[in-house]
C-alpha cells in the first residue's frame, strides 16, 4: 500500500480514537438508559418540588364548590386556573387534618348536590381563608380584570365557546363581575 495512504489511515484512526475518547468523557453516564436522553434527567425532574395539586385532592375538601363547578358553564376549567397550583395548600391541610375545611360542616354533601347556596359557600370560604396562614392560602381573584382575561370582547376569540362582553357598555364598570356571576356557577 502506498505510504501516503497508510499515513492517512493512521491519521484517521488517531482522529477517530480521539473522538471516541472525548465522547466517552463528555457523554453523561446515564445517557441512553431509557431513550435518547439522560436517564438522570427523569430523576432530577422527579426530585423537583411539587407545586401542582391533583384536582381530586381539591374535591376531597371542596365538594360544594366542585359540585357547583361540575354543573356550570365553567365545568371545563380546572380549579388551578383561578386558584393557583395549590400543592402547598393541600399539603398544609393534609398535615393539619381536615377539621378546618370549608366543607367540614357538610362533609357528607355529594358532589352533584348543587342545592347549597353560593352565599353559604362564600361565608364558609371566608372563614376557611381567615384561619389559613397566608403562605398556604389559595388565590381567590375577584376583580374585573381577572374575568376579562377570558371574557373581554376579542374578535380572534371563538364567541360560541367563550361568552364575551364589551367592557365599554356592559353594566357598571366599578362593580365586580362576581357579584352577579358567581364564578363556580356563572349561569346560576
Amino acid at each position: 500500500m502506498p505510504q501516503q495512504v497508510t499515513r492517512l489511515i493512521l491519521v484517521f484512526a488517531i482522529f477517530i480514537g480521539i473522538f471516541y475518547t472525548v465522547r466517552s468523557y463528555f457523554v453523561p453516564e446515564s445517557w441512553g438508559e431509557f431513550g435518547h436522553y439522560r436517564g438522570n434527567a427523569i430523576r432530577e425532574i422527579a426530585a423537583l418540588e411539587t407545586k401542582y395539586a391533583d384536582i381530586k385532592t381539591c374535591i376531597e375538601c371542596h365538594k360544594e364548590n366542585a359540585g357547583l363547578l361540575a354543573e356550570g358553564e365553567h365545568a371545563s376549567i380546572k380549579c388551578q386556573t383561578c386558584h393557583g397550583p395549590g400543592y402547598k395548600h393541600n399539603k398544609y391541610y393534609e398535615l393539619q387534618g381536615k377539621s378546618n375545611t370549608p366543607d367540614s360542616a357538610s362533609m357528607s354533601t355529594e358532589i352533584t348536590d348543587t342545592s347549597v347556596s353560593t352565599e353559604n359557600t362564600d361565608t364558609s370560604i371566608q372563614k376557611h381563608k381567615s384561619t389559613t396562614p397566608e403562605e398556604f392560602r389559595l388565590r381567590t381573584p375577584d376583580d374585573r380584570k381577572f374575568c376579562l382575561n377570558c371574557h373581554e370582547l376579542n374578535s380572534g376569540r371563538p364567541e360560541k365557546a367563550i361568552k364575551q362582553i364589551d367592557v365599554t357598555d356592559h353594566y357598571n364598570m366599578k362593580k365586580k363581575c362576581i357579584k352577579c356571576h358567581p364564578p363556580h356557577a356563572p349561569n346560576s
Binding site: 502506498p2 505510504q3 501516503q4 495512504v5 499515513r7 492517512l8 491519521v11
Partner: peptide, 18 residues
C-alpha cells in the same frame, strides 16, 4: 505533509489517481 516525503513519479501518480 504528515511525514510523507516521497515525491517520486510513482508516488505523485498515485496522488493524482486518488
Amino acid at each position: 505533509t504528515l511525514g510523507v516525503s516521497d515525491t517520486s513519479q510513482k508516488a505523485v501518480a498515485i496522488d493524482e489517481k486518488l
